[in-house]
């Protein structure tokens, strides 16, 4: 799981600030120009294709139409996004705190942590959103807790497993050093195991951040408050109002990316030593 956990690592490297003020701007240009060109080209092509082949709006709306709808609908879409974001963040915090707590409690007993693995794999293979109707029944369909608990389940296992990994997969020499100081278990936990687990934890948190936004939206498909983004999307899609649906999708993407970026920044702040920050001059 961990090998794909840090999904965006390749581009993160690209987003990193590189040393050397002189070459900095050229570097940045080299990094951001190609995607920007692709973006513009794709939009132009999209618009052109829809115009030339007279594709009906309900099949594929033009970017210009989506943009117009986005502006027109922004007073609806933004609050809806905020509403859903609250569920996503609430569930994310709940799930990751629980994951970290259980990891700290069980990491001492390898067998317990190992016994959790099959559950993690099982839950990972389950479409968690299928739990949505049950959570709606448990907490009430409009209760944000119903969606938060779905998100929490999605977040819980990756966070727990990665934290356990980080707490246990410590360099043997680092532990021997502590032994030579006759350090207490608590000191080893605080000074070796926890710092060692932070990179693992953050890679799980980063993946979970985008998943939790998606999880919140999808769980709203099974019913939820009328202010919610997922409810809005499924209603508009059912009415073939795809301009509106696309506006909501854009909001959803932006929320996911923003959430990810926040965690990325947090990671940088908390772990100034981390490997990914060791920017090197490649050329």
């Amino acid at each position: 799981m961990s090998q794909v956990a840090d999904l965006a690592a390749p581009i993160e490297q690209e987003l990193l600030p590189q040393p050397g003020a002189a070459s900095r701007w050229r570097d940045r240009l080299r990094r951001f120009l190609p995607p920007a060109i692709v973006f513009v080209l794709a939009l132009v092509l999209w618009e052109a294709v829809v115009n030339i082949f007279h594709i009906e709006g309900f099949l594929l709306p033009k970017p210009s139409v989506i943009a117009a709808t986005f502006i027109a609908e922004s007073s609806v879409v933004f609050p809806a996004g905020l509403f859903t974001m609250r569920e996503a963040v609430g569930g994310f915090v709940l799930g990751s705190l629980l994951g970290i707590a259980i990891a700290l409690a069980t990491a001492r007993w390898a067998a317990v942590a190992e016994g959790m693995m099959p559950f993690a794999i099982a839950v990972n293979s389950t479409p968690i959103v299928a739990l949505a109707p049950i959570m709606n029944q448990w907490f009430g369909i409009t209760n944000p807790l119903a969606k938060m608990s779905i998100v929490a389940v999605i977040v819980f296992f990756p966070v727990m497993i990665n934290t356990v990994k980080g707490l246990t997969q410590v360099d043997a020499a680092a532990l021997e050093l502590m032994r030579s100081y006759a350090a207490t278990d608590l000191a080893v936990l605080l000074r070796v195991r926890i710092p060692n687990s932070l990179p693992y934890l953050f890679s799980a948190l980063k993946v979970s951040s985008t998943l939790s936004v998606i999880g919140a939206i999808v769980s709203e498909y099974f019913g939820g408050s009328r202010e919610a983004l997922g409810v809005y999307i499924s209603q508009q899609a059912a009415l073939f109002h795809f301009g509106e649906a696309w506006s909501a999708i854009i909001i959803a993407c932006l929320m996911g990316i923003a959430f990810y970026a926040i965690l990325l920044t947090l990671e940088r702040l908390i772990m100034p030593w981390h490997v990914s920050i060791r920017a090197t001059d490649e050329e």
């Binding site: 360099d171 020499a173 021997e176 050093l177 030579s180 100081y181 932070l198 030593w273």
Partner: peptide, 19 residues
Amino acid sequence: RRGREYGMVFQQATLYDWR
């Protein structure tokens, strides 16, 4: 060891990355 009489140095420096 519990009386902290040993200072140890290994072949690898074993410095903690995060410090």
